[in-house]
């Protein structure tokens, strides 16, 4: 465990807690894309298949349970909660994520480290995580202005993967044969996707004005 990875995990944890807090306290999910939350639930479900078979550390298991629990409860809140569901804007959140799930499955079947069920599912979850934010970014573009909790959520989510890239660089130089092309490429693609959001987020923060994304 290195500082970049710990910071990345904490940032990731903060992003889901900010979202849960927002939905739980103001009982609203305005501006949140249910599609992205469903994709993240799939990402964690397909990545943590080994949660009960391979014990790595208490930290690892606890964090996996938190990520699984939070992502599924966020989906539950937006879909089922009698008050929260009313603020879900399904007319705007129309991203057809079958167009990203199928290519990720196909890609995971042909580009993976080992053609086993667990390995292909893990690879699929990496590819899917890289593009899972798309419905959320599309929704933000459509609704144009975003409240700062949603902005913080997307920012933290992007920052976590950028920190993971630093962690992979650190591990590449400090551990022998630590070569994992697949998460590296998926992670870079993911961070680049947040690139333009970071740009507008930084400028709105610098000029201390409400974050407005261009149409």
């Amino acid at each position: 465990m290195n500082i970049f990875r710990l910071a990345g995990d904490m940032t990731h944890l903060a992003s889901v807690l900010v979202l849960l807090l927002k939905i739980h306290t103001i009982k609203s999910c305005a501006g949140i894309s249910l599609k992205t939350q469903e994709l993240y639930a799939i990402v964690f479900a397909t990545r943590y298949l080994d949660i009960f078979t391979d014990f790595i550390s208490l930290y690892n298991t606890i964090m996996k349970l938190i990520f699984l629990g939070s992502s599924f409860s966020i989906v539950w809140y937006i879909r089922q909660h009698k008050i929260v569901r009313r603020s879900y804007d399904k007319d705007q959140d129309t991203f057809r994520y079958v167009f990203i799930v199928l290519p990720c499955i196909f890609l995971a079947l042909i580009i993976n480290e080992k053609f086993t069920f667990k390995e292909v599912m893990w690879t699929f979850s990496l590819y899917l995580e890289a593009v899972a934010i798309l419905p959320q970014l599309v929704l933000l573009q459509r609704t144009r202005n975003i409240d700062n909790l949603t902005g913080q959520y997307v920012f933290l989510l992007g920052a976590y993967r950028a920190l993971y890239i630093l962690n992979w660089i650190y591990r590449y130089f400090t551990e022998p044969h630590y070569i994992h092309w697949i998460p590296w490429i998926a992670g870079i693609v993911q961070t680049l996707l947040y690139g333009d959001f970071f740009y507008y987020y930084f400028h709105s923060w610098k000029n201390n004005k409400k974050l407005q994304l261009p149409a």
């Binding site: 990731h12 550390s57 690892n60 964090m63 996996k64 480290e113 080992k114 998460p183």
Partner: peptide, 10 residues
Amino acid sequence: EIEPLPKDEL
């Protein structure tokens, strides 16, 4: 054939 490294990251 080398085994893929264990997945110790989240």
